[in-house]
Amino acid sequence: MLSSFSAEILKLYKRPANWTILAVALILSLVFNYLVPYAGYLGADNERMAEGILAGMMPENLVPNSIGGFPLFAGALALTFGAISVGSEYGWGTLKTSLTQKPGRMALFAGQILALAVAVATIVLVIFAFGALTSYAVASSQSEAMDWLPVMDLLRGISGGWLILMTWCLFGAMLAFLFRGMALPIGLGVVWILGVENLIVNVAAALLDFADDLQKFLPGVNAGSLVAALGGRAGETPGVNTAVDGTQATLVLAAYAVAFVVAAGMALQSREVS
């Protein structure tokens, strides 16, 4: 497993598309959490509004600012990341190259999932690090008092954010294993994240009782609730909600992550490779 892990890490590190995904996730995060609010702050009509905007950018809000976009847009990027990492192996035919080296299929698979987990952790840490720097820069430029959040809160925020992105990444990876490619998985996955869940929550749930119950078990809804439980602003940030509490959200996401891994592993193990 370690041999395939190190091979996977080398591939992920050297692939330009992965750096593009990281850059887009980071830029979107900084633009909507800091750049746009900062512009709004400079142009605010009144003192109270300006104060409010500035407070939102302060270091104590690092967690909700960093993970606020994870249920939707960063989630879609994580899904794309998972789908291209797995799916392009089918397109290039490289799966036969790796499978005819030494590790068995499951060892190879374990190394691959582990490498994705490390890569997703890197994405989360980079977003937190740049968020922290930006909010430090804003605070010191406005001579605001800086209240850094407790380390435990920071760790909970980072691990919660990792769980959300990892679940979406595994969703993309699983679809790629099932469909043996990447185009369809990206399309279906993004439609699910940005469209289908929305329809279930906003349309179907109001009309059908079972849809109302069902929404509490959707991955996106639970991701949004986890963000809210970690300090996110429900109703204000798209995708963030209070449908369920933090404990349930964590458990449901973890269950999805495990289920995606199992389904993906079974697909790889049982299918033929040509």
């Binding site: 041999s3 395939s4 190190s6 091979a7 080398l10 591939k11 050297k14 692939r15 330009p16 598309a17 290039w92 035919g93 490289t94 799966l95 036969k96 190259t97 790796s98 005819t100 080296q101 030494k102 590790p103 190879l108």
Partner: peptide, 28 residues
């Protein structure tokens, strides 16, 4: 066992040497 089946399949974004590095890591 070393093998080459049908057409050679490698990662297009990697150099020849890096492709061999990846394969060497898989193979230990």
């Amino acid at each position: 066992v070393g093998s080459l089946i049908e057409s050679p399949a490698f990662y297009p974004y990697l150099s020849g040497r890096d492709n061999l590095r990846v394969v060497a890591r898989y193979a230990g």
